[in-house]
Amino acid sequence: MQQYWRSNLRIVAVLMSIWFVVAFCISIFFIEPLNSFTIGKLGLGFWFAQQGSIFVFIVLVLAYALLMDRLDRKFDVDE
C-alpha cells in the first residue's frame, strides 16, 4: 500500500505542477511578455488567463481520474 500511495502522490505532484505553471506563471507572472504573442486577435497571456487555463484545468481533472483508474486496477484497490 505504501507503493500505491507513493504513485498516487507522484501523479498528484505532476498534475499540480502543471496547474501552478498555467494558473500562476503563464497567466499572472509572465502575462505581459506572453501578450506579445497572439492567438487569434488576443494576447496569449490574456487568452490563457481568461480561457486557456480553464481548458487545462478540465484536462487535469480528467487525467487524474483516468490515471487513478489505472493505478487502482494495478494495485487491486478498485471496487
Partner: peptide
Amino acid sequence: LISFTGSDGAVYLMGWTGGYVLLALLLAP
C-alpha cells in the same frame, strides 16, 4: 464584473475553476 475589470477579471475565472482542480485531486476522493 469581468466586463468592468478587463484583463484582471481572470482572478474570478481562474479562482473559481482552478479551485476544482484542488478539490478533485486533493480532497474529494
